[in-house]
């Protein structure tokens, strides 16, 4: 067995892989948060709960209707996206004229309610979700074994991030979205139904979270706390990447996942705090975040 810097290579690569996997979820979640923040000016604290809801929808589809993983990957985002439309229309849209803090409080409350309901109905121990048959097993990469499913998660997350980036940066719809982020009133005066666009942006952002939730279901068990475990780190990712920056979210998400993984090898005691250390340093040096535009 060979070693790198005195650490056994399998340990190092294992943690690196774990870091990249976590990074994939950080990226997907912070991407949705960034899009929502850019357009709605709301820090969506319910994001983790909706990620969890995505996993629960996948689990429910399988348990009650016998609908498997691949359909869940499509249906769960649609279901959670539709739920997002209801939330935005019914509750969040009433807060646009108020301070940011009200949106934060409302979505935080929503997160507590959604997670509480899940805990009440399903307990907090979690339910297993099987890896689909076509993604079972592992590949020998020569220096380590890569479980196929984990490789798939990284690829799927990267593709989804890229697709979101292309839509926002390279299409007319994305141009309208970017313009509305800058000056929603003027865009509306150009004939664009901005309120509808805001609703659909929220739905799209939470659908991304649900997609991540389905990806996560076979790795972590489906449990009511799975979102809460992620969300604090994801907020740090968004702050480090720069509020509202798409590219920043993706790069920072994967980057911090790796940093976290490597810290687990070299100095495990710091692995839970290293991200916040990075956040403090970045905010001191670049208050708008790594990819943020100074206001």
């Amino acid at each position: 067995m060979f070693t790198i810097l005195g650490f056994p290579a399998p340990l190092l690569f294992g943690q690196l892989l774990l870091g990249v996997i976590n990074g994939a979820f950080y990226a997907l979640l912070s991407l949705g948060l960034a899009v929502i923040f850019g357009m709605l000016n709301i820090v969506n604290f319910a994001h983790g709960a909706l990620f969890m809801l995505g996993a629960f929808v996948a689990w429910g589809l399988l348990e009650y209707l016998g609908i498997g993983y691949w359909w869940a990957l499509v249906l769960a985002p649609l279901v959670v996206g539709a739920f997002g439309i209801v939330l935005e229309k019914l509750l969040i849209s009433r807060l646009y004229k108020l301070d940011h803090l009200y949106g934060l409080l409302l979505t935080f409350g929503l997160a507590l309610i959604i997670e509480g309901l899940a805990r009440n109905n399903f307990g907090s121990s979690g339910m297993p979700y099987p890896i689909p048959a076509s993604l079972q097993g592992a590949m020998n990469l020569g220096f380590m074994f890569l479980p196929v499913y984990r490789g798939w998660v990284v690829v799927a997350a990267l593709v989804m991030c890229l697709a979101t980036w292309v839509v926002i940066e390279k299409t007319p719809l994305g141009a309208t979205l970017r313009a509305a982020t800058e000056n929603a009133k003027l865009v509306q005066a150009f004939g664009v139904n901005v309120p509808l666009m805001i609703t659909l942006t929220y739905a799209g952002g939470v659908a991304l979270a649900a997609f991540a939730g389905v990806l996560a279901a076979p790795i972590y068990s489906v449990n009511p706390n799975m979102g809460a475990n992620f969300i604090i780190v994801v907020f740090a990712v968004v702050v480090i990447g720069g509020m509202g920056s798409i590219l920043g979210s993706v790069v920072t998400g994967f980057g911090l996942g790796v940093i976290e993984g490597l810290t687990k090898v070299f100095y495990p005691q710091a692995s839970a705090t290293v991200i916040f250390l990075v956040m403090i340093i970045v905010l001191l040096a670049r208050p708008a975040g790594l990819f943020g535009r100074a206001a």
């Binding site: 007319p172 141009a175 970017r178 313009a179 982020t181 800058e182 865009v187 150009f190 004939g191």
Partner: peptide, 11 residues
């Protein structure tokens, strides 16, 4: 955040 063509095509 839009280039000239995107600005032109926005309305």
């Amino acid at each position: 955040s839009l280039d000239v063509t995107e600005n032109l095509m926005l309305p």
